[in-house]
């Protein structure tokens, strides 16, 4: 299997963490993984993105230019990465913040009102997990259990009390894509 994914959003929306969780989950499942962030001035407040590749074969380029899947958390990210998505791919978008519908008809589009869902769950900070949950249910790239395991690696120990909330958000997102 091969997954080439771009996750994009404002700095602070947790897009880097989403990528790292997927990478750890892939690692736990014995797959090859790579994660690379965009870096530069846009990391401060602007749009940030990361490329994640998960593969059973050795990974060639870690930089994804024609993604198989895209998760976009804000409007500029949708505008930028929707056209790059390969036909048949998966597009998860944060419909809480994005004020237009995706236009592609040759991909699977999943709307996730991530911020609204997160607010309902009691913390706006798990909006990224809602989107990630939908993506996982749609692609089954790694298992939900592996992601839950990855939370222990990615979240600092003092935040481990938030793992159940994160898992709840993942599951809520997954419901949308079923």
């Amino acid at each position: 299997m091969l997954e080439e994914l771009i996750i994009s959003g404002f700095g602070g929306q947790g897009v880097m963490v989403m990528g790292q969780l997927l990478s750890y989950a892939g690692l736990f499942e014995g797959k090859n993984v790579s994660w690379i962030p965009s870096y530069g001035p846009e990391m401060r407040g602007g749009t940030a993105n990361c490329s994640v590749v998960i593969s059973t074969d050795p990974i060639g380029s870690p930089i994804v230019s024609e993604p198989l899947s895209v998760i976009v958390m804000n409007r500029p990210s949708l505008d930028r990465f929707e056209p790059a998505l390969r036909p048949g791919g998966v597009l998860v978008y944060n419909s809480s913040l994005i004020d237009r519908m995706p236009t592609r008809s040759d991909v699977r589009v999943i709307a996730v009102p991530a911020n609204d869902m997160a607010a309902e769950l009691g913390s706006g900070r798990v909006a990224n997990m809602c989107a990630l949950g939908a993506y996982l249910a749609a692609t089954r790239v790694v298992s939900m259990d592996s992601i839950a395991e990855s939370l222990k690696e990615v979240l600092p120990a003092r935040r481990h009390n938030l793992i159940p909330l994160n898992v709840k958000a993942l599951e809520a997102g997954a419901e949308l894509a079923k």
Partner: peptide
């Protein structure tokens, strides 16, 4: 290069 510096792999 910047890619090798910034990317994560196992």
């Amino acid at each position: 290069d910047g890619v090798l510096g910034q990317m994560m792999e196992p």
